[in-house]
Each structure stands twice: as C-alpha cells, then as structure tokens.
C-alpha cells in the first residue's frame, strides 16, 4: 500500500538519509558552501574576517538578484540566456539618462523599465511565437548587448554620485546595502513563489504545461510574466552594478550569465521546470562568490577561476541526477 511506503520515507532516520543520494543533491549547495568555507579558512585565516565576509556579501548581491530572476524562468522549464546583456542594457540606459541630466530616481526607473521591456519581449516571443526559450533569449543576448553598444556609442560613462556610492559602500554592520536589497528581493521572491497563486501557477506551468492549461491557467501569460520578472531583476542588478563600478559600461558581463545559471543549478532547481526553491540558488550564488574570493585570497591566478566554476557546476549537475 502506498500509504505505508509514504510514511516510511518521511520518517527516515538521519543515518539512512545521509546514505540517500537525493538528500545530498537537495542540499548540494549548502554542503558545498560549508566545505569551501572550511577549506579556505584552514588555508587562509583572513577568509572569514569580517571585512572579507562583508566584501563577499556585497559581491554576491548582484548574482543573487540575477539568480532569483533566472530561477523563475527555469521553474517554467525555460532559460534566460539574455539576463546579463539585459543587465548591461539597463546599466547603459541608466548611464545615458544620468549623463543627460536626469537625477538618480528617474534614471533608475528608466533602467528598470528598459530591462523589464527586454524581458517582456523575450516572454512574448516565446509564449506567442512558440519559439524555444533558448533561441529567443540567445537572440536577445546579442540584440541587447548591441543596443547597449549603440546607445553608449561603445564608451563607458563615469558616474559619480554620493548616493550611488553609499549604495555600494554603506550598510548595516557587515551587510552592505546592496546585499540587503538582494535579501529583500529573495525573501519577496520566496513568498511569491510559495505563497501566491502566481507562484503555484509558475510551478504548474513548468511541471506540466498541458495540465496547467487544462485547469484554465494561461501558460502564455505565466511565461511572459517570468521573463518580465527576470528582465526587471536584471535592471535592478544593473543599478547595483553601476553603483559598484562607478560607471555604466557597455561590457559583455558574460560571467554573470554563466554564474546565474550555475547558481540555479547548484541550488537544486530542476532544469526541466516544476521544481524550484529560492533559498537554493541564493546559497548557490554565495558558493560561487566564495569560490572565486577564496581562490583569489590563495593567490591562485584569475585564469583558473572560470575553470573552477565550470567544474563545480558540472559536478553539481551530475549530483542533481540523483535528486528524486
């Protein structure tokens, strides 16, 4: 009888759980993060100094925000390959608006709007044009970076603004403002995913699109909404990025794309859609930042960092195969 097997697996003892591969898959990001912290701390005691923790959290902020957006898209069995170039576009729009004399708030709104619009275009082409997510967002990757280059005429705009500076340097204790913003975004995203009708419909759209449609859920609308969210969060990331580097550059930011997908995979979110958490990708983002930070502290050449990130991600994806 299924009832009995069900209670048995739920009341599993800890030793039994530790032997279960799906348990490790579920918590891969957290286990990996703890392991990395122990190793790096043992090799270099400054790793866990307050100053370094603070800088890691700030460095993780943008990635967390992008990973949250990417999670929503991947939860619907899609993928947003344009997330980083849409962020670049947002940054350039911000820079141009600021250079044109707009103050911080309207420039930020414009950046958010431009990025959200790019996301919505992705969603509409995917949902109504019925074209694979992969292709549409790959096209947008190119289009958005091209647009950014055109708008910026290929040149970065330096932005010196005291408020923007405090966004990237100020904070409460070891928590920088940008990290606090990222946490607020993550908490809101968690509540929406698990405590709202929309969140349930996102998971249903990813898990079983035909079933969702049969129950009257408009999967097209859900698709458009998740790409809009992804775009808008890329816009928020753009503002934090400009604050962080003090300039709006039409640079490619490809590392952010790879890392956002990597964080989601590390976080145990199924690439086939229907299963997702927000906590997982956030821990995944922290893990990636800790990895790069630790390698830098140990004096490992920068050239090794992409290699390390790649290995970790593929290992994580392999581990996911054991997830139930």
């Amino acid at each position: 009888m299924a009832n009995t097997t069900l209670t048995a697996s739920e009341g599993q003892s800890w030793p039994a759980r530790l032997k279960d591969a799906s348990f490790w898959a579920e918590w891969a990001a957290l286990v990996g993060l703890i392991a990395l912290v122990i190793v790096f701390q043992a090799l270099n005691p400054t790793f866990l100094s307050l100053g370094n923790i603070a800088s890691m959290l700030v460095a993780a902020a943008i990635l967390i925000i992008l990973a949250v957006g990417q999670t929503y898209v991947i939860a619907t069995a899609g993928i947003d390959l344009s997330i980083a170039s849409v962020m670049t576009l947002g940054a350039v729009v911000f820079g141009q608006a600021y250079a044109a004399g707009l103050s911080l708030a309207p420039a930020s709104l414009l950046a958010l709007f431009a990025s959200a619009l790019a996301g919505a275009v992705n969603g509409m082409i995917i949902a109504w044009g019925k074209i694979a997510d992969f292709i549409v967002t790959l096209g947008m990757l190119s289009a958005a970076s091209g647009l950014a280059l055109i708008l910026a005429d290929g040149k970065p705009v330096t932005i010196i603004d005291p408020l923007l500076l405090s966004l990237s340097t100020g904070g409460i204790g070891i928590f920088g403002w940008s990290f606090i913003i990222a946490v607020v975004v993550a908490v809101a995203a968690h509540v929406v995913l698990f405590r709202s009708r929309f969140g349930t419909h996102v998971l249903a759209t990813g898990g079983a699109p035909e079933s969702a449609t049969a129950m009257g859920i408009s999967t097209a609308r859900i698709k458009i909404a998740v790409y809009l969210i992804s775009g808008a969060l890329a816009g928020l990331g753009a503002i934090l990025l400009v604050a962080r580097i003090g300039a709006a550059e039409p640079a490619a930011n490809t590392a952010f794309l790879l890392n956002s997908v990597a964080a989601v995979v590390l976080g145990g979110v199924s690439l086939f859609g229907g299963r997702a958490t927000i906590v997982g990708p956030c821990i995944g983002a922290l893990l990636l930042v800790a990895l790069v930070n630790g390698l830098t502290l140990l004096g490992v050449s920068q050239f090794y960092q992409p290699l390390a990130v790649g290995i970790v991600v593929v290992l994580a994806a392999l581990l996911m195969r054991f997830q139930q």
Binding site: A204, A208, A212, A214
Partner: peptide
Amino acid sequence: VHQNLALVEDL
C-alpha cells in the same frame, strides 16, 4: 477528468 488526468506531479 482528462485522459492524462491533468495533474501536476511535482505539486
């Protein structure tokens, strides 16, 4: 009640 039941397995 659809032939494929229209259930979402992960929910």
